[in-house]
């Protein structure tokens, strides 16, 4: 297994108290696999990624438990220098906003080349040549000329391609893409997503795709983990999840999308708001918004149940499905009230 996150816990100290942003998250990514992490703002999806990359702001954040095994090594036990060697070279990240992630006063060639100078000890001239190659690889027209341009001279889609080139520069084994296409227009979004998926397939990288867009997930991901209030509430192969969600939150999200091929009357809407992370409700964090909630949901935190078929064995190998709902059976069969 390329990456195993085990029972990760991250807290933030805020004025309102301690916010448990990540509360016991476990997931795995195999070589060449795409895991989509889906959640709304505040669900902990980005914080988990930051902990994996080692770019979490400490303080106010702190990792209070769990382990992150990357190619067998526990990243949380490594020294900062060792992590720096891994970051960028063995795992890389693509951010949502390419304009603010790129340095505005350096040419894109300098920024791409820096990867090779710092990590590979190349000369500036060789690094520049590699930068052109990379820009060509992500199909930026006239790469040899444009390598001297500054980030603001590129369009949004082109900037995101440069971000992808930068992430791919050292052929990392794992890429984390945090909302890579959210800031782009639909027609450009499709181009960038396709490019990312193709390159990932070619290099057999593991990809963690963090998004709130269920449509993007359906197109590219193998597996999906749905997060809510710092926990994973459901994990499954994408097609299983879309066909029959086993958690009422997932079902609510799917039902609330106006579909192009559905003529909607009233949209289903999940009632209420996501909880504040400093005051997560006791029991299942989703119960105040859940149409199926019963007394047990208000008191007992549901573990991640193994969903049939596949069962516990399936869940352990990463093939099966899990749902953190006491009534996952009802939800799966669609018998629970909506």
């Amino acid at each position: 297994m390329l990456l195993e996150v085990r029972d990760l816990r991250v807290e933030f100290t805020t004025r309102e108290g301690v916010a448990k942003a990540v509360n016991g998250v476990s997931y795995e990514v195999a070589e060449g696999e795409t895991l989509a992490v889906l959640g709304e703002s505040g669900s902990g999806k980005s914080v988990t990624a930051q902990a994996i990359m080692g770019i979490l702001d400490v303080p106010p954040g702190r990792i209070t438990g769990g382990e992150i095994l990357f190619q067998g090594r526990d990243l949380l036990r490594l020294k900062e220098e060792e992590r720096r060697g891994i970051r960028g070279a063995e795992m890389a990240m693509i951010f949502q906003d390419a304009l603010s992630s790129l340095n505005p006063v350096l040419t894109v060639g300098d920024q791409l080349g820096e990867m090779f100078v710092v990590h590979r000890g190349m000369s500036k001239k060789d690094a520049r040549a590699r930068a052109v190659e990379l820009m060509d690889r992500v199909r930026i027209p006239a790469a040899a000329q444009r390598v001297r341009d500054y980030p603001h001279q590129f369009s949004g889609g082109m900037r995101q391609r440069i971000m992808i080139a930068m992430a791919l520069a050292l052929r990392p084994a794992l890429i984390i893409a945090d909302e890579p296409t959210t800031a782009l227009d639909v027609t450009v979004q499709a181009q960038v997503m396709d490019l990312l998926a193709e390159l990932q397939r070619e290099y057999r990288m593991g990809l963690i795709l963090i998004t709130h867009d269920l449509g993007v997930v359906a197109d590219v991901a193998d597996r999906i983990a749905v997060m809510y209030a710092g926990r994973i509430v459901e994990t499954a192969p994408v097609h299983d999840l879309y066909k029959a969600p086993a958690h009422p939150y997932t079902r609510g999200l799917l039902d609330s999308i106006p579909r192009l091929d559905h003529k909607g009357r009233e949209l289903y809407a999940i009632k209420g708001l996501p909880p504040s992370l400093t005051a997560v409700p006791p029991g299942c964090p989703f119960h105040p918004r859940c149409p199926m909630a019963q007394d047990v949901c208000r008191t007992d935190v549901p573990p991640l149940y193994a969903v049939e078929p596949g069962g516990a064995a399936g869940l352990a190998t990463g093939e099966g499905r899990g749902s953190a709902c006491h009534f996952w059976r009802d939800c799966l069969e669609g018998t629970g009230s909506r």
Partner: peptide, 27 residues
């Protein structure tokens, strides 16, 4: 046509295969 085909959509079982039109470049 291209705009409609570019919308990433929630996969629905047994949906008809959707055509894809990928436009080149930016506006």
């Amino acid at each position: 046509h291209a705009l409609l085909s570019a919308v990433p959509e929630v996969e629905i079982e047994d949906a008809e295969p959707r055509e894809r039109i990928r436009l080149y470049g930016d506006v």
